[in-house]
């Protein structure tokens, strides 16, 4: 359904993504694991098309020269050159790193802005759905986004992304800064979203432990390259992965 082949991203001469290929089937959850600066966010930005926007802005301001290479196909369509807004329209929606909640809008307004691409009927339906999977948001409806806790912000960010009617949801570090209990609860919510709505999901995370159980397939990113890939079982059996992500041998 979604396939990336040979993605390369350079900041000037620094290689941020080195020949990364990955794919995600219909209704799959795919995990991308890696430490800080392994290239996870660059990868997610490239998949969502935000990289094109960053590239344009840098070029205009005379900043870093960014080069993007590779092929992306989504539902049989070449989306590599699609601008970010068009990619979201096609169904690839990114829930960005650090959430990027609209701080001066209420929770409800954040969700309504998220429903920009949705038809009125879809928006009402999705709003109900978001409130069922994240009931904590109901009470916070009128709270400003900037005054939410990390966990609440993450729920809102995922909810807002769902409002854009994704076929493929990209989650960039959804567990960042959350307590372990909430991390596991959120991982389960991600699984629920896939099971209940059939949304394909790619999740980039450095905390592999809570995410590993819910994925169908996973990649390990190191220094911009996908060094190991496999199903959940294959990754869990790999001694290097075990050592690096689970602290056991």
């Amino acid at each position: 359904m979604f396939e990336a082949r040979g993605l390369m991203v350079f900041y000037e001469n620094m290689l941020a993504l080195n020949n990364v290929s990955l794919s995600c089937g219909e209704g799959q959850i795919v995990g991308v694991f890696g430490a800080n600066s392994a290239g996870k966010s660059t990868l997610m930005y490239t998949l969502a098309g935000i990289m094109l926007d960053i590239q344009k802005k840098e070029a205009m301001a005379g900043g870093e020269r960014i080069t993007i290479r590779g092929a992306l196909s989504f539902l049989g369509r070449d989306v590599m050159q699609l601008k970010p807004a068009k990619r979201a329209e096609a169904g690839i929606v990114l829930c960005p790193e650090r959430r990027r909640i609209f701080p001066e809008s209420s929770v409800m307004e954040n969700l309504r802005i998220g429903g920009y691409l949705a038809k009125p009927k879809e928006a009402t339906e999705t709003l109900d759905y978001v409130m069922t999977i994240f009931p904590a948001l109901v009470k916070l409806e009128n709270r400003l986004g900037g005054f939410l806790s990390g966990g609440e912000q993450q729920m809102l960010a995922i909810g807002r992304a769902l409002m854009a009617q994704p076929r493929l949801l990209l989650l960039d570090e959804p567990l960042l800064g959350l307590s372990p209990a909430i991390q596991y609860w959120l991982a389960k919510s991600i699984l629920d979203i896939r099971n209940q709505r059939g949304t394909s999901i790619i999740v980039a995370e450095q905390y592999a432990r809570p995410i590993m159980p819910i994925i169908d397939y996973g990649y390990i990113l190191e220094n911009g390259s996908a060094v190991v890939e496999g199903t959940k079982e294959e990754l869990l059996d790999n001694p290097d992965v075990k050592a690096a992500y689970f602290g056991t041998n």
């Binding site: 969502a48 935000i50 807004a85 979201a88 960005p96 990027r100 809008s105 691409l117 807002r160 854009a164």
Partner: peptide, 11 residues
């Protein structure tokens, strides 16, 4: 409020 977040939502 946040151009990049808006972009991810198709705006």
């Amino acid at each position: 409020q946040d151009e990049r977040a808006a972009l991810t939502l198709g705006i």
